[in-house]
Amino acid sequence: MTAFSLDPEQIARCAELRTLAAERLRPLAEKGEPGHVNRPLVAALGELGLLDALFEGRSEGGGAGAGPPGEASGALDLCLTRESLAYACTEAETAFALQGLGAHPVHAHGSPEQRERWLPPVRAGHAVAAFALSEPGAGSDAAALSLAAEPDASGGWRLTGEKCWISNAPEADFYSVFARTSPGAGARGVTAFLVPADRAGLTGTPLDMLSPHPIGALAFDGVRVGTEDVLGEVDRGFRVAMTTLNRFRPSVGAFAVGMAQSALDATLAHTAERTAFGGTLKDLQSVGHQVAEMATRTEAARLMVYAAAAAYDSEGPQSPGIARRAAMAKLIATETAQYVVDAAVQLHGARALRRGHLLEHLYREVRAPRIYEGASEVQRTIIAKELYAAHEEEPPA
């Protein structure tokens, strides 16, 4: 199997996931309240064993359940799962992905005690995780975060400051939090902490956002964390954040590809049936060319996502080029999905803007992935930086 073809088992699994999402998960999603964690949906993801895909492969930090070095991380499987879920139920996909994003720092960098305490309930869908990196003044520039971790007399730290735009906040059960332990040190002075939601001094506020999943702000008022709460190493938390994002960025692209494919299939069905000007819409050359462009861009994005995930699996998260591939995959897939969904709305006309229509839903969902986990502009910056670094390392011809 190469990065550019799926084996029959993978194809069958994707079809099974689409059916599962449509028949078992979408009814639960429809009962959820926008802006709040849909705990029955998260629990169903656990009961169906879908959350297990988030924790396959090795752990960089060792601990219980860690695989041997070099073991496949399952990044491609993660992408296939996210794409398939997104095609049939974006709410299920998002709930699935947020469990992975919030808990991956624990899986990859946590101590045996942290992993044994939190990963089983996350996998079962009984505990909700969140990834707390962004701040009011540090979104795209993650190295500029200012949440202060000040030493206290007990040998631990007190967290003081704010986090903002945090998915699953303020309703998560624990947060992977990134705070500044060494002022003035930039990316080298950040430490990752596992902070349970019931820790004294931690409060949260929901934000009314376009996306239907919960997003909130967190306030830290002298929240106590100890050495037992550190994820990875002190002052090495930026690496925890970036390796997490490198793993999940291609799968954000997979989420986008799933939405694009859903919009494309809806467009094919609509234009094949809708009559206009003495025939069907598909008989108009302008429509046919538009659909061809939508399909070509979607397939190109899909292949880049698969290639980035396959490289992560075969080479590991620290290998040269992994960050560039991840950034390219997220960039092209999210920009493509925006284009495809917008084109699908145009070809459907006014009906696509009616509340409850699939494309009205996708139109709202597709916008955020171009911003979160690194906006498109950030991805271009990463790509350029990696390209020039590789160029400078090349020996003269």
Rank of each mutant, 00 (worst) to 15 (best):
A397T: 03
A179Y: 06
A169P: 05
H104F: 14
D52K: 11
E16F: 13
E365S: 07
A276H: 14
G46N: 14
A148C: 06
A350P: 01
A260E: 03
E83A: 13
F55W: 08
D221C: 08
D342W: 02
A149R: 02
L194T: 04
H36G: 14
A86D: 09
T271N: 09
T296W: 13
P69A: 06
T298A: 09
A310N: 10
E393D: 11
R302P: 03
R18T: 02
P250W: 00
E335S: 08
A88Q: 06
H126V: 06
S5C: 07
H107E: 13
R24T: 13
A22H: 08
A368H: 10
N38R: 08
A323K: 00
A311V: 11
I382W: 00
H104Y: 12
L41S: 04
P170W: 02
A397D: 05
L147R: 13
E23R: 15
L85F: 10
S262T: 01
G258P: 05
A12S: 13
H361W: 09
A263M: 01
A187W: 01
Q338S: 08
A172I: 01
E91H: 14
L359H: 03
H391S: 09
P68Q: 10
A269D: 10
G216C: 04
T280M: 01
P68Y: 08
Q290D: 15
S134P: 03
V122C: 07
G253N: 09
T203G: 15
Q290M: 14
S146E: 04
P395N: 04
Y363F: 12
P68K: 11
S182F: 04
G288Y: 06
D313Q: 09
A241G: 01
T191Y: 02
G204F: 08
Q114N: 04
A92I: 05
E373K: 03
D235P: 03
D152A: 15
S84P: 02
G67H: 09
L85E: 02
E365L: 10
E9V: 12
M328N: 05
A276S: 13
D52F: 13
E135H: 00
H109V: 13
C89V: 00
E233W: 03
A29K: 06
V106G: 06
E315Y: 15
A97R: 12
R180C: 09
R199C: 02
Y87P: 06
E71T: 15
